[in-house]
């Protein structure tokens, strides 16, 4: 009897110590899985991670930050080997990140921001993206004109882009933000469309450009131009490299440019850094920026003249 108990205990111990060693449990947690870039990044990360033999579990909380915190706690309690936060600020779940740190679970952030207890944040610098987009738009307008701004400050990365715009505006005194709209999520495309229609009512041809913090409202704006002001000379620029936006750029519409973040690249670097951490090394830095790629008619090989 005692023997049986002993061997059972031994077996249990063996199982509990050896199982994690067999496969590395990596939990990917994100509130924004329904957004294409987040999805791309998560899929790329999953592929890269699984190639290394990791067991990658994806958890999506559908825009719900309360759930994000709960799922983080579950993950920590389940004793994952690593947590990857995607498209969200670790500060929003600071307590849970601290919990993970206490449990010795490394937290890697993709497309987020640098934060305490986060080993490394791999991202395109959203502030730089905002600057890059603003420079591209203002240059196309020859430094003079009226623009409409679509923003969504609830998303930390998207908010950084807005700050990038503000910083750039200081260098361009002749660029005017004549209207701005806080994009409603969910349903950003239709919301952008309705808002743009209404703004067109008020300003019509005065509008020279549309600055979209992400492509969804830009797409909505394009749809509004198509139906309300097809002859307008205004141009739209956005960020994300959204497929539908790229399609619009290729069709020579008002949509002139979108900045595509190198999501697969980010995912790849994220996997490399996490591998280092799991091997007991330190990451290269606590924040790694991956540059974005502009997509225009030219880059797509389309001539719109």
């Amino acid at each position: 009897m005692t023997n049986l108990k002993l061997s059972l205990t031994a077996l249990t111990l063996l199982a509990s110590t050896s199982l994690p060693a067999l496969a590395t449990d990596v939990n990917v947690v994100t509130p924004y899985m329904s957004s294409i870039p987040t999805n791309d990044m998560v899929q790329a990360f999953k592929a890269e991670g699984e190639a290394l033999g990791w067991d990658v579990t994806v958890i999506d909380t559908r825009n719900d930050f309360g759930q994000l915190a709960s799922r983080m706690e579950d993950t920590v309690n389940a004793g994952a080997d690593a947590i990857v936060l995607v498209s969200t600020s670790a500060e929003l779940v600071a307590d849970q990140v601290a919990m993970a740190a206490e449990a010795g679970i490394p937290v890697v952030s993709l497309d987020g921001v640098k934060a305490e207890n986060v080993a490394v944040n791999v991202t395109s610098n959203n502030f730089d993206l905002g600057v890059q987009l603003s420079e591209a738009l203002f240059t196309a307008l020859s430094g003079k004109g009226n623009i409409v701004k679509f923003f969504h400050s609830a998303h930390p990365g998207v908010h950084q882009r807005e700050l990038g715009l503000d910083a750039t505006l200081e260098n361009y005194p002749d660029i005017n933000v004549i209207a701005e709209h806080f994009v409603q999520v969910p349903g950003p495309v239709d919301d952008g469309r309705v808002a743009m229609e209404n703004i067109l009512r008020q300003y019509g041809d005065e509008i020279d450009g549309v600055w979209a913090a992400f492509d969804d409202p830009g797409i909505g704006a394009e749809l509004a131009f198509e139906s309300e002001a097809p002859d307008s000379d205004a141009i739209i620029m956005g960020i994300d490299g959204n497929e539908q936006a790229v399609d619009m750029i290729a069709s020579c519409t008002h949509y002139a440019l979108t900045l595509r973040q190198d999501f697969p690249g980010m995912a790849k670097i994220g996997v490399e850094q996490l591998e280092k951490i799991l091997n007991g090394e330190s990451p290269d830095s606590d924040e790694i920026f991956v540059p974005a790629v502009p997509i225009t008619a030219d880059s797509l090989g389309v001539s719109c003249e």
Partner: peptide, 16 residues
């Protein structure tokens, strides 16, 4: 109709 109008469909598109 929403999908027809915006040319794409989002799994939380009806949330609002």
């Amino acid at each position: 109709l929403l999908t027809a109008r915006i040319g794409s469909a989002n799994p939380t598109g009806g949330g609002g």
